[in-house]
Design a binder for these strands. Structure first.
Lengths: 187, 187
DNA sequence: TGGCTCATGTAAGCCGTTACATGATTTT
DNA sequence: AAAATCATGTAACGGCTTACATGAGCCA
């Protein structure tokens, strides 16, 4: 009973209340996008597969207006979700951070180029903080996890912004513009 | 002249000095693994491709002992690397954080299960901090980026550990063990 | 001699992104 | 009337992981 990433997301999202594929996408873009993205190319086929496996059930909910299908968890689906949530195996964690990689190789660059790189990195996370701030959920005593997750996102990216500021300062105060020639190696 | 993720990594790694595939893997596992991983299944074929594209050049360097190939950048390779480094397009950034996703859906769990989840998350990042601490590079005035990147990793994961501690405290101090029945929805 | 590290690969398969397609309905 | 949003998909492709394979030297 293995669930891929998209399946986990779907089951979880539906456990928050019956939802259509489209609504899941919206909620993802407001809430989990930055630590668990999904694309329609993955979402809709996976909804079909989960229905065939009997973990979710879809019903037409087009009340007069647009055609659409709302899904809800079956008992098997609730079990599968729970099983995953309490699964003791190692929690997956991966990051792909192009700015960090570039920075690691920044020895090839001159001082201004490095600074520009760090500034771009800072802007990126400032934007992430802004975007996240814009979708603040209201506090709900019975469901604190949305809010705490939102706070986590804000805090994490704010920390990165601060790191960028400190690094910019350190790189700026460092001696004269010693632009090391290109191609020079240092093993 | 597009470079995929692995190609960027390879060019950068080789710019730090001529290296074999195996050495690149080692350096990755010590330095970039957490924000830019690579597997041999991707690495070795990509080395061949980059050589065919004329961006790197490999020579046998088996001095008596084992067979191995050391690669160095060609002028075209240096250009390609530089082009990527100063490229102004949006810097890629993605995270896949299973613990964060589980936490978002933690309404399904009872209080102790949530606490266990957060603790597992904390342990994960404590381990990351330890692992990173274990591979501290020495400071090098002419190449500060390795060190600064290392520090970044330590700082980031430490921040996450602290967030977990705060969250554990908040969840613990919160009222009596109100284990909400399963299956209950809150839309 | 058995196991570990060095060193380089291949094959299968999943997973996910991108881009495209369609059509209805609401808004400007 | 045009444009944006709602809503659901499909096809192609790339990238990456996993697992396996091989063989040579090193160390106990």
């Amino acid at each position: 009973m293995e669930l891929n990433g998209t399946a986990r997301l779907i089951l979880g999202m539906i456990s928050l209340g019956r939802r259509s594929g489209y609504e899941i996408k919206q909620l993802v873009s407001r809430a989990t996008r930055h630590f668990w993205p999904v694309s329609s190319g993955q979402l809709y086929p996976e909804l079909k597969r989960l229905e065939q496996r009997g973990l979710i059930r879809g019903e037409e909910s087009s009340q007069g207006d647009r055609a659409r299908v709302d899904y809800s968890l079956t008992p098997d689906g609730e079990d599968a979700l729970r099983q995953w949530l309490v699964d003791q195996r190692e929690l997956g964690f991966q990051m792909r951070d192009e700015a960090a990689l570039k920075f690691y190789f920044a020895g090839v660059l001159d001082r201004n180029e490095v600074l520009e790189l760090v500034r771009a990195r800072r802007r990126r996370h400032e934007r992430l903080v802004e975007e996240t701030s814009a979708v603040a959920p209201e506090w709900d005593d019975s469901a604190p996890f949305r809010y705490l997750t939102w706070e986590y996102g804000i805090g994490l990216h704010t920390w990165i912004v601060e790191w960028c500021k400190r690094t910019e300062a350190r790189l700026s105060e460092r001696t004269p513009p010693q632009s090391r020639e290109r191609g020079k190696r240092n093993d």
